[in-house]
Design a protein around this nucleic acid. Structure first.
Lengths: 231, 231
DNA sequence: TCAAAAGTGTTAACCATACACCCATGC
DNA sequence: GCATGGGTGTATGGTTAACACTTTTGA
């Protein structure tokens, strides 16, 4: 920390992360049970104070590692909440991020100042500490808005997935059914899916084709300014 | 300020505002010439430290009033810049806002810690202090993205305007020509323009019809979740 | 009467939507 | 052989995009 005397007002600054995942059925969020006051025992978003020598993004990555064992995830800044009185400890400003993780990378275990960390279905969240319910709401709105023009959905799926997996994910996020034929037409037409030499096995129905998100192709298309209307 | 000892790391937090205006020809930004170090004499975005008892939005409104005499403008949070080393005074986090003002409400005069404030065409900005050039870039991207699905353009025009004014504004922001007939069809079809009983006077060509943005009607439409594809 | 910008419709291409049946597989 | 989900095409209506001339006004 910086110990020199500063000549300007200073405030506590936290980062908080809405980490979203998808288990094949429902959208989920990582919450941690607070081990210390305030809101001791309540569920909250993972996060904590920004230290003197780290950027906001470094801070949120460190907290996610410490509190939930999460690393290497898609992260994006969401909004900064700075109302006076949003934290009982004093004037604390929170810069919120949202993150997306693939099912594989889910250790989600406890850390230093949080006694537990676990996934909750977004449709069944407990009461949250601070103004975190509001933060979650903003994050879900943002994801819903973003998914229809940017391929962020792939950050929630395993490397290999079927078109039905992708469609079910979109339906879970948008909370409405989508037409199968139109959905397939659109995604295959976009040219950002790479067909793999693999199909499902051991399923009691016709085995589905596996695909992979073609990042390189997507970047080419995005660079030429194509309008990615996904749904 | 809060004088009690705090048990968590603290940082300076500033707000900075990209205030955009439109003079009928070009998009413009308010800049202030810094009267104090660091970057004394350089042009910078209006802004300053957040005090202990004000929200971020209160802080940015206060700074805009003090430094540029601006009040009552459309304001929206843009992004929070928190890299270590972005400010030579130490670890300072900046929450940036962008604002839109109508030509009428342009006092833009000097205040306490800024010796001058004035408008610059966005296409001819001087070298800016801190990382403010980056902040401006982010703000312009945001405005360009936003204008195509939300009627923020009206915040940059006088109460009464012609369809040609509106079109020229869109062309200035998007930096490309738009088709006159299609532009008119779309905006008139949207039903968010109120035709006034006034026309231009003293112009050396057919006098244009004046319109007004119909906020009430817009809110009705927005509430029923209509997709406002504007351009 | 000229210059300058306002105002006005139609057509063709494209895109979004709605919709139903056969196929492959495991049990 | 049946239950389960995978995979496929077409027709229709709506939306977007391209395009040029007449009108009004002041100088």
């Amino acid at each position: 920390m910086n110990n020199t005397k500063q000549h300007f007002p200073q405030h506590g600054v936290t980062v908080d992360a809405v980490v979203l995942g998808y288990n094949g059925e429902a959208l989920q969020i990582v919450l941690v049970k607070r081990a210390i006051e305030p809101y001791k025992g309540a569920w909250a978003l993972p996060g904590g104070f920004v230290l003197a020598n780290e950027s906001l993004e470094d801070a949120v990555k460190r907290e996610l590692q410490e509190e939930a064992g999460l690393a290497e995830l898609y992260l994006e800044q969401l909004y900064t909440f700075g109302d006076v009185g949003r934290d009982p400890r004093g004037r604390i400003i929170s810069c919120a991020y949202y993150g997306l993780v693939r099912p594989g990378s889910h250790p989600v275990m406890s850390g230093s100042d949080a006694s537990q960390a676990r996934w909750f279905d977004v449709s069944a969240l407990p009461t949250l500490a601070f103004d975190h319910a509001r933060v979650v709401r903003v994050a879900l709105e943002r994801l819903r808005a973003k998914i229809s023009y940017a391929p962020v959905g792939f950050e929630l799926l395993p490397e290999r997935f079927t078109l039905s997996h992708l469609q079910r994910l979109y339906e879970a996020i948008l909370d409405r059914p989508l037409d199968k034929r139109n959905f397939r037409k659109r995604f295959l037409g976009l040219g950002i899916l790479k067909e793999l030499d693999e199909r499902e096995t051991g399923v009691a129905h016709r085995a589905a084709q596996f695909y992979q998100f073609d990042v390189k192709r997507y970047r080419q298309l995005a660079a030429t300014g194509f309008g990615m209307k996904l749904v």
